[in-house]
Amino acid sequence: MDRQEAIEFLVDHYENPRNKGEIEHPDVNLSGGNPGCADVITMQARFNPEGKLEEVAWHGEGCTISQAAASYVSELVQGMTPEEIEEMSFEDLMDQLGRELVMTRPTCATLALGTLKRGVHEFVMKQKAKQSDIA
């Protein structure tokens, strides 16, 4: 993907955001932001009984890159397990978004994924705590 293709890819996600909104009964519901910056993203996710992502949504405000990246991440994680989401790499995401383009704003580019990963981690910890209580 050359620079112009990367720009058009991100512009498309910014103007036609995927999975933007809210979902009912989310397992994950966490907001994240960049201190000192206007970027704020709330990530929501719900997993099915098989442990795979059933629905994901996000909403927020901020710069074009943070919003476009949130849209892209919401597509990327479809059908993943919590463990798979937790293992996702920021570096891979930067490559997929167009590293040359987003390298000047890495915290914007990774805000949505970072927020989702933290939310998923909390969800996994709660699940484990519940299981140990039952045991």
């Binding site: 720009i7 058009e8 512009v11 074009t64 890159i65 383009l101």
Partner: peptide, 8 residues
């Protein structure tokens, strides 16, 4: 500074 703005 925001590299996407012109295209928008």
């Amino acid at each position: 500074e925001d590299v996407l703005l012109y295209e928008l």
